[in-house]
């Protein structure tokens, strides 16, 4: 079975969706403004004759004409980071502010983490966690290359994340007891990466999805618990399956004191609302405030993103 056929009922223009999934993705870089302004990075690319097109929704996200961002001086200096276009979305939804305390629960290899650090002006405290020790070296390498210095890297199971390394439940003045914001860019079935990895669906199975949903729920619940009342939690995946998206939100809305909040992507970036019904299940109506990103809308990978507020 072709897994993507499941979503024919969600899309009136399913053929365009299927066609987009078969096209390779362009190489995209994000300008790292911790090290260079967008103008300066663009001038340096121009001077080297590297051709690119600015995305119509983000001046610092550039589509390169040729593949591979590696071999240019601006890249060497850490002014650019290779990052899939759609993956710039969750950090914007999180909207972290300079000086805040922010948690990235599933941080490696660090594209979104370093974007969050950039938005925080490299101030405050950013905790980048990943349960995979092997992937942590990529996270550290990328963050340091991009000049990030406000990042603390931890290696915990995000479902039981402990703030103990930061002095929780002590009397120390520097202790941290809750986050202002948290990003849960959850492990998922990765259906939306099919344009980047043509074999992404080779191991697809409903059993696998059922297994991973438990992890997603556990991490999102922990993020809500670890975030202060009034704080923001963003949930994102790179997959289409409602089981991993709206159903996870629906579960957390019932189990934790939180609400989904409206959030609009930048102008020029087109999304579809979350679905409230799937395979006989009905979800909380507020999941419509979440954003589904289909590859044919903006010529990107597939994605899902929702913004929640933690209640008192």
């Amino acid at each position: 079975m072709q897994p993507l056929e499941r979503y024919a009922s969600l899309l009136s223009d399913f053929d365009a969706f299927r066609a987009a999934c078969d096209r390779p993705l362009p190489s995209v870089v994000r300008v790292n403004t911790l090290k260079a302004s967008v103008e300066r990075a663009r001038e340096a690319l121009d001077a080297e004759g590297v051709a690119y097109e600015v995305t119509d929704w983000h001046p610092g996200v550039l589509r390169l004409d040729e593949r591979g961002p590696g071999t240019s001086w601006p890249y060497f200096h850490g002014w650019l980071h290779g990052q899939e276009e759609v993956s710039a979305l969750p950090a914007l939804a999180l909207d972290p502010q300079p000086g805040e305390v922010v948690w990235d629960a599933c941080a490696a290899p660090g594209s979104k983490t370093s974007q969050i650090a950039d938005l925080m002006d490299d101030t405050g405290l950013l905790v980048g966690n990943d349960n995979n020790l092997g992937r942590l070296s990529a996270l550290r390498h990328n963050a340091e290359r991009l000049g990030v210095t406000n990042l603390a890297v931890t290696n915990q199971d995000a479902r039981n994340f402990s703030l103990k390394p930061f002095g929780d439940r002590t009397e120390q003045p520097e202790r941290i007891e809750a986050f202002d914001r948290a990003l849960v860019d959850a492990p998922c079935s990765c259906e939306g990466t099919i344009r980047k990895n043509p074999d992404a669906l080779d191991r697809w199975s409903l059993e696998h999805i059922k297994g991973i949903v438990g992890i997603q729920k556990g991490i999102l619940r922990r993020a809500i618990q670890a975030t202060r009342p009034g704080g923001t939690v963003v949930y994102s995946t790179c997959t289409f399956a409602p089981e991993e998206n709206e159903a996870v939100l629906d579960h957390v809305l019932r189990e934790e004191d939180c609400e989904i909040r409206p959030w609009e992507p930048p102008e020029g970036f087109e999304t579809d609302p979350g679905v409230t019904e799937w395979k006989g299940e009905e979800y909380d109506p507020s999941v419509q405030l979440a954003h589904r990103v289909y590859p044919h809308r903006n010529d990107t990978g597939g994605f899902f993103c929702a913004r929640l507020e933690v209640m008192t």
Binding site: G124, L136, R140, T149, N150, L151, F166, T170, E174
Partner: peptide, 16 residues
């Protein structure tokens, strides 16, 4: 590290 935290701490990385 662009912030302060408790010392010692056994995290995997702290700043640059």
């Amino acid at each position: 590290f662009a912030a302060d935290t408790v010392s010692p701490t056994d995290v995997e990385g702290l700043g640059m």
